[in-house]
Design a protein around this nucleic acid. Sequence first.
DNA 1: CCTACCGATCGGTAGG
DNA 2: CCTACCGATCGGTAGG
Lengths: 224, 224
Amino acid sequence: MARPRADNYEGQREAILKCAAALFAQRGYVGTSMNDVAVACGLSKPTLYHYYRDKDEMLARIAEGHVSRLVELVESVEADSPGAPEARLEMLITRFLLEYADAQDAHRVLTEDVKFLPKVDRERILNKERRVVEAYANAIGLLRPDIGKAGLDKPVAMLLFGMVNWMFTWLKPGRSLTHASIAPLVCDLFFFGLAGATAPASGRRTTPTACRRSWTSAPARRPA
Amino acid sequence: MARPRADNYEGQREAILKCAAALFAQRGYVGTSMNDVAVACGLSKPTLYHYYRDKDEMLARIAEGHVSRLVELVESVEADSPGAPEARLEMLITRFLLEYADAQDAHRVLTEDVKFLPKVDRERILNKERRVVEAYANAIGLLRPDIGKAGLDKPVAMLLFGMVNWMFTWLKPGRSLTHASIAPLVCDLFFFGLAGATAPASGRRTTPTACRRSWTSAPARRPA
DNA sequence: CCTACCGATCGGTAGG
DNA sequence: CCTACCGATCGGTAGG
């Protein structure tokens, strides 16, 4: 008889990770026991330890797998569309939203549970996140050099990430509104907002309400 | 000797809550032990239980206290400025950001740890959150009736909350960029974005990239 | 307000 | 002698 050799080892590993991600997202990493994971997977706890060294390794794989796919997305868009920065950023936003739709559990885990990892793993994952933020900040700096020069490209990128990343708290699967269907609205809000935003050094920061143009008038193309 | 009678009971309660909120925000609710809280407060664990029935009560007080202040903010703005919806919404955003600046721990706890509360407490807090969302959605519906009629006023409100609520992940205290100084940028991004956003029923949702106007041209006032 | 504990459950691993 | 697991239980620590 031929030796079966680790049957579907990689398949099992992936199945366990999907399962663990769902539980971590629901009950939190610390609030989920290895026994919970085992039961949900239909496996014994010792079997879990055959596939993963410990609980932390599961967490690290879930978070890093997700952020790695985001980095790949960033790099593929950078490679594919050397052209207009606006089209590139819009493609980035839309692809991110499609990715998020299929990775909601992993995304919540990345957001809320990475803090429980040992420093080495945490830093490795944070560095990949920084890589993603930088890509967005660069695109924003190209669209609005004044904002970039004022050092506000990253803050604006983070505000954009806020719109998109916060969606996991309220956009539930199975409803009519989906990640894909809301993408154009997100892009509209952001691109029109970015085009209209006042330059930081124009002095209006000290008197936020007094200086706003009426929203019913056409937004300024760009300040000064 | 006169009995001191509950000295500074309420003061101690508040001090413990501040302390606990900082720990919960840092290590998570489940990841924080009552002993951690006791040590950080400079109290014994049994003393903690003199001020709070159990760990859940601390969590509930932190989260509900924060969201209650947000509801009060909403109601005070509704009472004070019966006038222009845009000015009211801008005031709401700015006051929220100022509140967030002083309640970053509580805000993180509200965001990440309410799920660990018993259903009764959780629902009570969620209802207050819904009250806040509705106020924002109403203001947005007044500014863009077409978006309101399409049922997108709440989604747009949630996108706005995303920008603002996500800030706790990246805006660290002690830097030059503060909640107050970024408020005008947030308002600009949102109001110009809202003014330019295409109406949902205009058909562009099926072809997101093809239909966008160039961001360099002036945004449309409003669709059709 | 402390030391000393409890019932239970944690993450991880023994023998078979 | 290997990989792939099971039932049972380890030493420590959680909330109370």
